[in-house]
Simulated assay, not measured.
Amino acid sequence: MNSTVNPASAHTFGGNAAGRERKQAVDEILAAHLQRTSPEPQTARRHQAFDDQGAFLYLEDFLPREFTEKLVEAVHAVTPAINRNYLPGHKQGGSVSRHAIDELAPFIAELYRSPVLIRWLEKISGDTLQESPADDPHAYALYFYTKAGDHIGWHYDTSYYDGRRYTLLLGVMDDSSCRLEYELHTRTPEIADQPGSVQIPPGGLVFFDGDKLRHRITPARANEFRVSLTFEYVTNPNMRPWQRFVSNMKDSIAYFGFGQVFRRKGGKNGAA
């Protein structure tokens, strides 16, 4: 599926909102967009669908076009910070953590923290959501499938926090055959597992409880290109020291490298 966004044509966000803070512009545009595309009755139906599918929702079209354009700009901005990783039998690809994103593509942090977005996700999930702590490199991250064989095997987005962790997966660019394959209800013995598969277009959305959805990304072929963005929100930001150690080691080895995970400790993490 080819991306419909032309990076060269992406305009400077907020250029017509003279004198406004970029964060305010993000909320204004997103609020108007959701009012058109997801009014209250529609949002209520999507919440019911989310529950019926065991905490999972897929929308082919979610983001305003100008936001998708800004995310494409962000992809180009963070390219020098991509960390390639390979775990035999499990995953291969490139990743950029929130710490590098804060420095190189701050629009992503502004969207992540948008009260309008968080309130809408709360209506879908039925939970009160909080941002991940400032030292969590997974809070928002970009994932690159750009070489033959790039993929991630079957897994859950396991929460190391005391509460639940929700994943918001946004399509950014896609000129690939990669698919998100998933199984619903695997944690509910009385309901049969339900397999599914989607190819998330630019601006599309998948939202799910990370501990409930078993999923994978199928391997990219030669000369294919896919980039996705994830946001992680939690119901309780507390994490025990041992769990934090395990989480940091996993992120260092499997995703971002030790430099991106540990270099920002004590710094200005999370500055939007």
Score class of each variant (00 low, 15 high):
Tyr233Ser: 06
Glu122His: 03
Arg98Gly: 10
Val246Glu: 00
Glu190Asn: 12
Gly93Met: 01
Tyr182Cys: 11
His11Ala: 13
Thr79Gly: 08
Leu170Ala: 07
Trp242Pro: 04
Leu104Thr: 06
Thr235Gly: 08
Phe207Arg: 01
Met239Phe: 02
Gln194Pro: 05
Gly204Thr: 10
Leu63Met: 14
Ser177His: 15
Pro219Cys: 08
Ser197His: 03
Ile101Asn: 01
Asp102Ser: 12
Ser159Met: 11
Ala139Leu: 12
Asp52Pro: 05
Phe144Cys: 07
Lys250Ile: 14
Ile29Ser: 00
Glu181Lys: 14
Ala10Asp: 02
Lys250Asp: 06
Met1Pro: 13
Arg119Tyr: 04
Asp162Thr: 07
Gly171Asp: 03
Pro7Ile: 14
Leu57Pro: 05
Leu34Cys: 06
His185Trp: 09
Pro115Asp: 04
Gln42Gly: 09
Glu190Phe: 09
Arg221Met: 08
Ile108Tyr: 00
Pro202Trp: 00
Ala148Glu: 15
Phe256Ser: 05
Ile124His: 01
Ser252Trp: 02
Pro80Arg: 03
Glu21Pro: 05
Phe208Gln: 02
Val96Ala: 03
Asp135Pro: 05
Pro115Thr: 05
Arg84Glu: 13
Gly210Leu: 10
Leu170Cys: 12
Gly19Val: 09
Asp61Phe: 03
Ala105Gly: 11
Lys265Arg: 13
Arg22Gly: 09
Thr68Gln: 04
His90Cys: 05
Gly266Glu: 05
Pro137Met: 12
His33Tyr: 08
Ala32Thr: 08
Tyr161Lys: 09
Val26Gly: 01
Thr43His: 02
Trp120Ile: 03
Arg84Tyr: 10
Arg244Ser: 12
Glu181Asn: 12
Cys178Val: 13
Gly196Phe: 06
Arg119Glu: 14
Asp175Trp: 10
Gly266Ser: 09
Leu63Phe: 02
Ala100Ser: 15
Asn223Glu: 12
Val96Glu: 00
Tyr255Arg: 10
Ala254Gly: 12
Arg36Gly: 03
Thr43Gln: 15
Ser9Met: 10
Gly171Val: 05
Ile253Cys: 03
Asp251Glu: 12
Asp136Thr: 07
Ser159Lys: 07
Ser132Ala: 14
Arg45Leu: 15
Asn236Cys: 13
Val116Leu: 03
Tyr160Arg: 11
Gly93Asp: 01
Tyr140Pro: 10
Ala139Glu: 01
Ala141Thr: 04
Glu232Leu: 05
Asp51Ser: 13
Gly14Asn: 02
Asn223Trp: 04
Leu111Lys: 00
Thr4His: 11
His215Asp: 07
Arg214Asp: 10
Gly54Met: 09
Met1Asn: 07
Leu111Val: 14
Ala139Ser: 15
Glu224Trp: 04
Arg20Tyr: 02
His90Asp: 04
Pro241Lys: 10
Pro237Gln: 02
Leu30Gly: 08
Ala139Pro: 08
Arg36Gln: 11
Ser125Val: 03
Leu30Val: 14
Ala17Val: 07
Glu73Lys: 14
